[in-house]
Design a binder for these strands. Structure first.
Lengths: 154, 154
DNA sequence: GGCCGTTCCATTGACGCCCATTTTGTCCCA
DNA sequence: TGGGACAAAATGGGCGTCAATGGAACGGCC
């Protein structure tokens, strides 16, 4: 099972947000108590997931030669900025102030499924990002379509 | 479980700092009473950990040929500068003046998880180092992403 | 006797845990 | 096909515990 779809949820007065139930069930199957998170590298969003995501990070770092500079940088930038958030009995987490600041989150967040992981966005920023991505996809499709003399259409 | 995330904590008037609770629990599981520390080789920071870290150092040195210059230097640089700090009942340590000087620490420190070990930084220096490491990682990721069909070789 | 380091105790605020309420979506039945 | 009951999800809040911090008490050493 994978993380799909997107949902916007509110933070309560204590800064808690419910993880969408479908995501929770994926995490549960992954067998991980908590939520592994880190700031997305090139987006103002938080990457989140369970064991699968953590293993991915670990593998990435383990591929680098021991004691190499690249490995040190990876470990610092990834492990150093990661958090394992606790999930309460109702399936909620509290985002650290650092995460909220990085993603520009105040009182609402968008959970966005990306297959093996998901992201947490400030809803407005996510809409913008999505619109941009959609445009790119349209352009790509138009480009692909133009190469088919038959006038292929979806 | 591993050391992840970063936390900034204050030193009190006696020079004591609390080890972040999540780190403490990792150390406890490691079954090591105290905190094994030494100056990081190529960063103005202190490497710290428990049995796992000590074993790593031991292995590193053991890999060098007996009586080799490299081995002597490693042993001197690592064993010679290591300290096992005492942890008090509240989970605090007192950094030696040598460590503080080496890392430029005065009244605050950043604890930074690196997986199997963690580092202790002067917070401002850590921010700078993190920014640099993040840039490097972005470049690395861009490089990996560029290896598409028809493009760069593996 | 004073200084220094260690252990123990007190305070404060944040967080974890528990329970109540509201909202949403679904299914069943009239 | 509309209404209503039911279940699941999301939300709100109270309270106890623990982490971080500060300071006092104790003991040894110079």
């Amino acid at each position: 099972m994978q993380f799909v779809s997107n949902t916007v949820l509110r933070l309560d007065s204590k800064g808690r947000v419910s993880i969408p139930a479908p995501f929770r069930s994926v995490l549960m199957r992954d067998g991980f108590d908590g939520l592994y998170c880190y700031p997305a590298l090139d987006q103002p969003a938080i990457d989140a997931g369970g064991n699968a995501l953590m293993a991915e990070i670990e593998t990435l770092i383990a591929q680098q030669p021991l004691y190499s500079v690249a490995r040190d940088h990876l470990a610092l930038a990834l492990y150093g900025t990661s958090e394992t958030l606790k999930v309460d009995a109702e399936g909620r987490v509290i985002l650290t102030s650092h995460f909220k600041e990085y993603a520009g989150i105040s009182d609402q967040v968008a959970f966005v499924g990306l297959g093996h992981k998901f992201q947490i966005w400030e809803p407005e920023r996510f809409r913008a990002e999505l619109a941009e991505a959609t445009d790119k996809v349209r352009a790509l499709k138009a480009d692909l379509g133009a190469r088919k003399p038959g006038g292929a259409r979806e």
